[in-house]
Design a protein around this nucleic acid. Sequence first.
DNA 1: TATGAATGAGAATTCATTCAT
DNA 2: TATGAATGAATTCTCATTCAT
Lengths: 225, 225, 225, 225
Amino acid sequence: MSTPSPKRAKPRVAPKAAEPRARDADRSQKDILRAALAEFAEHGLGGARMDRIAERAAVNKRLIYYYFENKESLFLAVLEGAYENIRGEETQLNLTQVEPTEAIRRLISFTWNYYLAHPEFLTLLNSENLHRARHLKTSAKVRSMHSPLVATLADVLARGHRTGEFRAGVDPVQLYISIAGLSYFYLGNSHTLSTIFDRDLLGAKAKVERLSHMTALVLGYLVQD
Amino acid sequence: MSTPSPKRAKPRVAPKAAEPRARDADRSQKDILRAALAEFAEHGLGGARMDRIAERAAVNKRLIYYYFENKESLFLAVLEGAYENIRGEETQLNLTQVEPTEAIRRLISFTWNYYLAHPEFLTLLNSENLHRARHLKTSAKVRSMHSPLVATLADVLARGHRTGEFRAGVDPVQLYISIAGLSYFYLGNSHTLSTIFDRDLLGAKAKVERLSHMTALVLGYLVQD
Amino acid sequence: MSTPSPKRAKPRVAPKAAEPRARDADRSQKDILRAALAEFAEHGLGGARMDRIAERAAVNKRLIYYYFENKESLFLAVLEGAYENIRGEETQLNLTQVEPTEAIRRLISFTWNYYLAHPEFLTLLNSENLHRARHLKTSAKVRSMHSPLVATLADVLARGHRTGEFRAGVDPVQLYISIAGLSYFYLGNSHTLSTIFDRDLLGAKAKVERLSHMTALVLGYLVQD
Amino acid sequence: MSTPSPKRAKPRVAPKAAEPRARDADRSQKDILRAALAEFAEHGLGGARMDRIAERAAVNKRLIYYYFENKESLFLAVLEGAYENIRGEETQLNLTQVEPTEAIRRLISFTWNYYLAHPEFLTLLNSENLHRARHLKTSAKVRSMHSPLVATLADVLARGHRTGEFRAGVDPVQLYISIAGLSYFYLGNSHTLSTIFDRDLLGAKAKVERLSHMTALVLGYLVQD
DNA sequence: TATGAATGAGAATTCATTCAT
DNA sequence: TATGAATGAATTCTCATTCAT
């Protein structure tokens, strides 16, 4: 077996046009995820463009593939990040440490405001549902992220019932879906809704009204006389 | 060089029939719209393929462009058709001719069952919302299609209040959005929801429970003691 | 379902740059196959470029995909065409109608000259072997193309033995492979061979010598005294 | 946004070990050459991937460039190694020390068995021929490696002629090419041949038959009565 | 000697749309 | 009204190679 002596490549001459990006793996990945979140939210999985993600993240397109296998893996990573984010903030509501009625109010209000502040989350979920949760189903962590939420809500309902305030037999998952759905549909479909009903649904006043309507609706149901 | 028999790039689905279709303008258009509805619902606007629509409709791709200017016009036509369909069936509920409580029950149940039977309607709306209702906003007819619905619901609420059954001050648009949202989110997001909550949401029992939960929720709010 | 009136696209204005290609499906496919043969032969399957094939064929790259599913299907089509060609010419040798010894001479000489005139055939086969005949194995027609060849050679050997000229027990497939191999290796590896042996193998004299060597070799074996 | 753990685009094969390899220049180079031989043989020069070579050698990709200028230099190094190997083993046949007929038998048998044991040698040569021996032509050593082989064979033929056993006027290069070609074509094209002739060419029995056929062929030509 | 991070220039393939009949 | 042929502009992904340490 021959053993060639090391050969140097020709020395570089041409100066580089653009500043090379700092060699910070962690930062690069975060930039990519942030950019991808925006892009997927804006255009859906199918409409998202890897080129645009690279541009948004100010990284070389190739780098995306260096860190994430392909578009779909990137999408899943974004999705997991999004769930982590909302569940993380939700945890900080400390629902188990306040009165049941107050806890429900907080949850409704938090959900509403989170969706308002993070419209990307809604379109992201829509995309994933269009794909029948194909990506999420391969996620190991997503399931475990949600059991605490259910447990917390179950605790609130149980406490409410024990004090006689809340009606009995309320399924926490069912209730959570209702609370989320009331905000989700209104905000996620605000464009079509405001078109077909010819009415501004996102004005300051409208938003106040919606939150109070939702709260009244849920508590009107939960609270016994 | 011998002359190879043409090796058509096999279209994903079935090859088209050799003989030209009978010249029936009306039927062709309906076939196209039906096919497009299915395709858009399955893949979203961005993911839909004109090729596949042509195949599904069993028409030549060129014919689609003959009847519909382009992909986006076709999408709008599909969208309008979808709204026409649900509003048409809704009208047949005759909500103004039954007791207010029964009217609400019927509306909830109808909405739920319609979404169940027409999942394509949900993804279609999601697509349109992703595009900020860009297409719908150019539609002349869609607005007028919705005022009867609001009027009907307002009538139900007014009657309910007059009899003392229903609480006062309920905004019909607000209520409609809530009723729709309760079904919409549950069904439209059933893939992600059943994944994250690790629970079958579409089993026979689950569906019965959901309908009864939604009805209890809305009536628990509306009906006074 | 709405029935929109046909809408015409905006009339074209801009004049086209290049002559549009004549609408001749058959000719287009042949052009593509011819170009692909040259490209695959020159660069192998992996090194071939669809872009270059399109250029060589003077067709739009997209058209290749219109007629052939992808690079590999195109490769198979080329391969089948190449086999058809050599087997077709071989048939015209009329080996069953001449004396056995003469038949063998003709076959050796034909094989040699065919490979000389069609070096692409050799590299094409090398490519396919590199891929373990992956493409050829899916070909329905290639097998049936070769049984006549074996039958013909078997007939020649049988006749030769009957007259006492040829030795007994010669396997026609074995002999065919030997005859082909003697030319194939010399010509297909002429570049490395002439390098390592430092000798021009493709000069006029060398070619005459090779053919006579091969003929002597094979007949020296076959013919009995 | 949470900080996701790096999701490396999974390389096709196994992930590299975390700790840097021991600093052993000689071993690294040999590992690289071994890996490159396998990769080039399997995929050809064009189809070979530097990434895979690095994985196979369990070295960092960058290290390959440290020892070998680029892909093509690496290919040449591999090629030279391959020739060194076969010529080295060939030398040990001691053809000048046995009877001419026996020498020829040994050479045929050795060639056959070497190709059988080293199929990578065949595809490597095919690759180099596809590139018109571009790399080999720059090799200083390869020519000198082959003159002994020719000399040895010339000696065998001369001895054989002197004893009256062998026919006169046999060119050693010509004969060597024939002997090599008989094995080379059969083995290197076994995939296509076994497909077109619909016959297993690599079974134990087939291999025995081939070797005896080749020996009979060559000796039937060489040996005089 | 060794390595993780980064990149520019392609590569195959896709897609909505138009041409010519 | 209907269709097969053709195309330009993307789009995802790949690859050899280099940078910085």
